[in-house]
Design a protein around this nucleic acid. Sequence first.
DNA 1: AATAAATAACGTAATATTGCAATATCACAA
DNA 2: TTGTGATATTGCAATATTACGTTATTTATT
Lengths: 109, 109
Amino acid sequence: MGFTKKHIFDAQQNQIANFTKMIGHPARVSIIQYISQNKDCNCNSLVKAIGLAQPTISQHLAEIRKTGLLNQSVKGKNLFYSINQDKLNESRRLINDFFVKTQVNCSKE
Amino acid sequence: MGFTKKHIFDAQQNQIANFTKMIGHPARVSIIQYISQNKDCNCNSLVKAIGLAQPTISQHLAEIRKTGLLNQSVKGKNLFYSINQDKLNESRRLINDFFVKTQVNCSKE
DNA sequence: AATAAATAACGTAATATTGCAATATCACAA
DNA sequence: TTGTGATATTGCAATATTACGTTATTTATT
């Protein structure tokens, strides 16, 4: 059909899927890396660095923003992005936990 | 358009995106968890446990299989799935590395 | 006020994904 | 060989995603 039956899964499963889905596009991986490496990174610098059109970058930024991973600060006519480190940590723990638990379960018996 | 311009990103960015995209659906999170928790898990038990139709589960299994995360073993007329732990570890390192590097970069200066 | 720069929002075409019914395949049992 | 159970494949409808041209919006500069 095209839509996902989210209601048959629990909150944590949906949380894990939501976050990894957001990372699941190389443009967004690249954007996150670039923002973490460059202070005072705005939309325009991402457009130049990555090579996708401005509306496309803006759209990917919106996807990342939806998960809470981005901070924004307005300086003059620029909008600078940075990584919300609390959210980064929280997400890292969520994903790592998924890996660890999976691994531990595999190793039982 | 619908397709992804993979060629403008590097191998690692595509690798990270590929793997997280596979996890980016709650059914696949649930399937991975279930397989890790239940020895001798076959397609049918997943259909019963998760509540999606057999073709849908089969399709999700194929997506997971594509990343190399699944082992299969035939016993009689059953096909049992288990987690490829080497691949799990490799992927965990890949994703964790992404998180760590992002975090380290954020903390510079 | 007029212009320019930066970015978001809107609209749309192309493609991908999700979910399932129907069907095919494959291995075993009767 | 006929049937049965387990899984994969096919085909399709509904929805989502990706990418971008165009247009609005907002803020600074002249």
